[in-house]
């Protein structure tokens, strides 16, 4: 009996030792050198693996940072400047400072402003609907409302509003990774400069049709009248293809364009209410 136990112990120990030796040599043979800084950089990153930097996850971004040895083209939108200076510190490089950005949906064609002219009855994704036809309304540029942007958001920062039928961005959660920008087949989502107190002014429209046609499809469409362009003192507004665009890097949030827009296509968000103009904007909305 005892001899069996002894033999067992000896055999198993021998197998164990042999395996350990084999493993050791194999590990030596196939060892791959990896820059230890990659691990350090990865640790400094947010670890969201959102792909907002243009790389396949944080590890790939860390590898790129170490390999490039230059951070001028690399930026993690989720971590922002703070994170990038951390990365720069590890690698002894200079990080580029970028203004924080936030996603903005450039369509305000709610169910009320933009009447439905057809009913889509296919698989409910924007990608399929947009490849089939122009959309449920007469505006071929507007939001389809099936929420592809919501599905791709890793940060729970964009949601469909069931009343308006449009997606809404939660500014505090948005990290400007750009996933929704990619996902939107109508290219309605733009990453704009983040202003203090979450304030924003933007043209909530991408309709490039001529004024009359655009207005017919949607009450709050930009008709390209260029009143805002004339009003802007900072050259922030440009008109192209019957559509105004406000450059958020030039905009000073003076709000003058908002009040001159005849169709209320320019939207101001999170501003204190203005005493007189507020009323007029509201009354025009009601009259429509």
């Amino acid at each position: 009996m005892s001899i069996t136990i002894v033999y067992t112990v000896i055999t198993l120990s021998a197998i164990g030792t042999l395996s350990a030796v084999v493993l050791y040599f194999v590990a030596q043979k196939f060892k791959v050198y990896e820059d230890p800084r990659i691990d350090q950089v990865e640790a400094a990153l947010p670890g969201a693996n959102c792909g907002g930097c243009g790389h396949a996850g944080c590890r790939a971004f860390a590898e790129a940072c170490v390999k490039e040895n230059d951070l001028s083209n690399l930026f993690c939108p989720v971590g922002g400047n703070e994170c990038m200076s951390g990365v720069a510190g590890i690698l002894g490089l200079e990080a580029v400072k970028k203004d924080p950005r936030v996603a903005v949906v450039r369509c305000n064609g709610t169910c009320e402003y933009r009447p439905k002219t057809s009913n889509f009855d296919g698989a409910t994704t924007c990608a399929i609907a947009s490849s089939l036809y122009s959309g449920e309304t007469d505006c071929q540029y507007g939001c389809l409302g099936f929420g592809d942007c919501v599905v791709v958001c890793d940060f729970d920062a964009i949601h469909m509003n069931p009343v308006t039928g449009l997606p809404e961005v939660i500014d505090e959660k948005c990290v400007a990774c750009g996933a929704c920008v990619e996902a939107c087949p109508k290219m309605l989502i733009e990453l704009r400069k983040k202003f203090p107190k979450e304030r924003k002014i933007y043209v909530a429209c991408r309709n490039e049709d001529k004024g009359g046609q655009a207005r017919k499809a949607c009450q709050v469409a930009c008709i390209g009248c260029s009143k805002c362009e004339k009003e802007c003192a900072y050259d922030a507004i440009t008109i192209a293809n019957n559509l105004a665009f406000i450059d958020s890097d030039k905009c000073k949030l003076c709000r003058k364009c908002v009040s001159v827009c005849p169709t209320n296509a320019i939207i101001e968000v999170n501003f204190p209410p203005r005493k007189i103009q507020k009323e007029t904007t509201e009354s025009t909305t009601v009259n429509q």
């Binding site: 439905k116 002219t117 057809s118 009913n119 889509f120 009855d121 296919g122 698989a123 399929i128 089939l132 036809y133 449920e136």
Partner: peptide, 9 residues
């Protein structure tokens, strides 16, 4: 009376 339905084939 109603709006038309659109769906893929």
């Amino acid at each position: 009376s109603n709006v038309l339905t659109i769906s893929p084939s």
